[in-house]
Design a binder for these strands. Structure first.
Lengths: 108, 108
DNA sequence: TACTACTATATAGTTACACTGAGTAGACGA
DNA sequence: TCGTCTACTCAGTGTAACTATATAGTAGTA
């Protein structure tokens, strides 16, 4: 649809992933499909997995491997307290920037 | 006010600078002050100058040096056609991401 | 004179994140 | 057997904001 959104997704995509995980345990492949369905159609597995690795490294999620009847085992992710706090901060930042951008657009 | 917005400003700050320039010729120091007044209080001159150098390198702006009675000469920036087109695309991308983020937030 | 502060630009180096591209592997139907 | 969908991993790349520092003009004031 739109050209390259990459730069504008910096900081935003991680927040989207946190939000999706917050709704119940899920795994990388499914997260990618949901982001695609949301409209971020160019986001591929590789991108999502790098985010998930980072979330795990920063101890924002707990993980559990479970078998799948559709293919290889899935690695499920759940937010922990730190992850929920990070998600809260993400939406706070988003609200801030969003309101400032609207101010700017409306010629304030 | 808020903690670190850096990552979320990627791609956004350049758009803000383009928008400010589009309202009439201006220069780096003034752009920085206006961004600070808008609420982006941690944005410093160095950050804005790197953006301005990039805009010039990418031929999105025309420049002119003029003396100032307040200090050293100022380098004024004006958008050219390519710059206006870039700004238009910026707001289009912003509208897209913005609407998707609202969808996500509203639990779609 | 020296200092402080405000105005004004420039740039080399760092960091963080999304992305690319390639590989591995299980399940299943044609 | 081949292709397709499912599913994860990881090394390397590119880009943009940021850090830190340097340079310099103007002007008040101690």
């Amino acid at each position: 649809m739109l050209e390259n959104l990459t730069e504008m997704l910096k900081g935003v995509l991680e927040g989207c992933v946190l939000e999706l995980i917050s709704r119940g345990e899920t795994y990388g492949y499914e997260i990618t499909r949901r982001l695609n369905a949301l409209g971020f159609s160019d986001v591929v597995e590789g991108t999502v997995y790098t985010i998930l690795v980072r979330l795990e490294k920063n101890r924002l999620v707990d993980t559990e491997k479970k078998p799948s009847d559709m293919g290889p085992p899935r690695k499920f992710f759940v937010l922990n307290d730190a992850g929920r706090e990070k998600l809260r901060m993400f939406w706070e930042k988003w609200a801030f920037i969003s309101s400032k951008m609207n101010e700017l657009k409306e010629r304030k």
